[in-house]
């Protein structure tokens, strides 16, 4: 066998499967676990804190607020848009998201012809804060009335002691 040193390897290679991935013909292989791919945004968990927008280095997300149709005055509909052609997939937005609304999926197959192929969007509804029970004027009037009552009571007390 010394004269044919690679014969064994050559013969075993004849019966081995090809290492080439059949991909464009077959199914795309799955990415490794914890691969950082396309962003998934769960709008129901989002509290609109804006932390993701702050930590994003390429500023790939946009936040557009508009008044909510059919809602109370002050309610807003906030649209988050993540542009995958702008993302570095660093995962900072997912790490900083307090409510875990942003996750990076293992989907890496991001090819497209138009810009809309790469957008991940979600809509968050922001309710207006509840209205206070009394206006500042009413509160001031109530305070003044309470003080006048206290003064009157003190004056009556002093008059009773003198008498």
């Amino acid at each position: 066998m010394a004269k044919l040193p690679y014969l064994g390897t050559a013969l075993t290679n004849l019966f081995r499967k090809p290492v080439t991935i059949a991909f464009p013909a077959g199914e795309a292989p799955a990415a490794q676990p914890a691969y950082r791919g396309r962003i998934a945004f769960d709008a129901s968990k989002c509290i609109n804190c804006g932390m993701c927008e702050r930590v994003c280095a390429p500023s790939c997300m946009t936040r557009v607020a508009k008044p909510l149709e059919g809602g109370e005055p002050g309610d807003q509909e906030i649209t988050f848009t993540f542009d995958m052609t702008s993302c570095t997939f660093c995962g900072m937005c997912a790490d900083f998201c307090a409510k875990k609304a942003i996750t990076l999926t293992e989907d890496y197959m991001m090819t497209g012809i138009i810009a809309e192929d790469f957008l991940v969007t979600g809509k968050v509804i922001k309710k207006a804060p509840p209205k206070p029970k009394f206006t500042p004027e009413q509160l001031a009037a109530m305070k003044a009335a309470a003080e006048a009552k206290k003064k009157a009571a003190e004056a009556a007390k002093a008059a009773a002691q003198q008498a």
């Binding site: 991935i21 991909f23 464009p24 795309a28 292989p29 990415a31 791919g37 995958m84 052609t85 993302c87 570095t88 997939f89 890496y108 197959m109 991001m110 090819t111 497209g112 012809i113 192929d117 790469f118």
Partner: peptide, 20 residues
């Protein structure tokens, strides 16, 4: 004509882009 997103895209994604 075709954009392949990713930073960096995997070779499979580039293959898909080329096929497209």
């Amino acid at each position: 004509d075709v954009s392949v997103a990713g930073c960096t895209p995997k070779p499979e994604a580039i293959m898909a882009g080329i096929a497209q």
